[in-house]
Structure formats: structure tokens, C-alpha cells
Design a protein around this nucleic acid. Structure first.
Lengths: 121, 121
DNA sequence: TTTATAAGATTACTATTAGTAAGCTTGTTT
DNA sequence: AAACAAGCTTACTAATAGTAATCTTATAAA
């Protein structure tokens, strides 16, 4: 829309110049990235190996699974455990911060139970 | 990964041949679409006009805002109210189903309060 | 003891989705 | 009359996702 910001609609900003909803926005954009939700969902069962995730999550490619796991590591939501680097056994596990996502996943599951799920158009 | 599905990891399926996590997956992929979360967040305040949303949500383009509102309508989460089609006043309002998303938004806000937000890499 | 297969990636390329910018229409302001 | 506002749409570019092939090293099978 071609117009200057109407003062009436400017949001409240905190001392760091961040709008109050910015951290919400950043977070949902992150956990809403494609495949992210279902990866977290499966990791809530406990530590999983790369190929386990790849089997359980139908349709995901190795490339995207790798990329999402790196994203999760970078945010401190997942740690990568590779006990012996000589053995190709790599496990991915939620950190305490990552485990706390369970409430969000739970809320979504409950919404679905109550309201039915969403679909691709 | 180049391998046939290991039977050990095949998921439980319901009578409709749907995996138990499919509806969760569809739903989070939908509400996790870019900008979707923050649009819902702002609509939880009450009905909003197109340009109000566009002002409040910094960075969104008209094109994407239109597209996301259409997506939300198609899923029955939002209704478009245009009392008089002669007047260019269009309001978007969450349906009861849409309002129930509040618990999910709430869960995310609480996670952020406790754990800090996620960032783009 | 070659041969094959598996885990966990990376790379190259194509397709889909997002971002940017402009334009359109009809009514209201100046 | 001219400019501007709301709510879209269209055209084009940039970014992200999907597909497929390849790589490395280790173990299993022939």
C-alpha cells in the first residue's frame, strides 16, 4: 500500500525499539518453517537418529531434514550427540528449552481434536 | 536416503490410511505459513480492516496479506465482512474455530516469556 | 576379499513460494 | 479538478523447497 504510516496504528515499542509482538513473530516464523513442527513432534518421543526421523516423517528429503536439524541446533533447541565420530551413529535430542515446546505442540493437537485439521488448498 | 522403508519404523495408520500425526502436520504447516501467525495474533484483538492489519504488521506486503486472508477464509478460520459493497470497508474477523487458535498463540507467547525468542540465522 | 549396503550428509539443478513495485477502481478530500 | 485512500491484482525478481545424484566410511554379505 502506498502511504506513510498512519500514527494511529503505530505499535507500542519497548526501550530496545522492539515491538511487543516481535518476539512472538520471530518465534512462530521459526517453528513454523516447513517440516519444523513435525520434526519437533517426533523428537518429543526422545532422542532419535537421523534415519529414524527420515523414516517417520513421510516425504521429507535428507537435504531439508539436515537443514532443519541445523536450524534447531543453532537456536539451542536440539543437541547432536555423536558419541564416537568413527561410528556413524548420530542422535538428535531436544534440549530443555526444546522440550518446553511440548506445550505448544500439545495446544495444536488439542485444537485439531476439537476443530478438525487444516488442509492445503 | 536411498533405501526401502524399514518395517520397524512404519507408523501406525488409522482406518482411513492416515497416520496419526498427519492432521497435526497439516495444521502446523498451515498456521506456520509465513505471516500467518502474526495475522492471527492481531485478529485476536477483534475484527480488523485490511489496512489496519497492513499497518500493524510491519513488513508484510499487500499481496501476501491478501493471500493469507484468503487462505484463512478457505479454512473457515476468518470471515470477510463487507457490509456495503459500495463502500470500501472490509473487515476480517475470526470465526469461532479461528478464535480457538488463541490457546496456541498463548502457548507460544508463554514459551517466549520463559525461554526467549527464536531468530533467523 | 571384493562387493554391496547403510548412515549421514553435500551438491547441483528445478519448481514453488515470497518479496517488490507498480497499477487499477471507485469513493472521498482538498 | 486533482490528489489521495482502501483493497485488491498483476508482473517480475529473489529466496526457499523439492528432487536426485553423489560422497565417505563402516559394516555385512557373497
Amino acid at each position: 500500500m502506498l502511504m506513510k504510516k498512519n500514527e494511529e496504528f503505530v505499535q507500542s515499542v519497548n526501550p530496545k525499539g522492539q515491538k511487543s509482538c516481535d518476539s512472538f513473530h520471530n518465534t512462530i516464523e521459526f517453528i513454523g518453517k516447513r517440516w519444523m513442527g513435525i520434526i519437533i513432534y517426533h523428537l518429543l518421543d526422545g532422542p532419535k537418529r537421523f534415519f529414524e526421523l527420515s523414516m517417520e516423517i513421510e516425504g521429507i528429503s535428507d537435504r531439508l531434514l539436515t537443514e532443519r536439524l541445523r536450524d534447531l541446533e543453532a537456536q539451542g533447541l536440539v543437541i547432536k550427540n555423536q558419541s564416537d565420530p568413527k561410528v556413524r551413529k548420530v542422535e538428535y535430542e531436544l534440549t530443555p528449552k526444546g522440550k518446553e515446546l511440548e506445550d505448544i505442540i500439545q495446544a495444536i493437537c488439542e485444537w485439531v481434536k476439537k476443530n478438525g485439521c487444516c488442509y492445503k488448498e
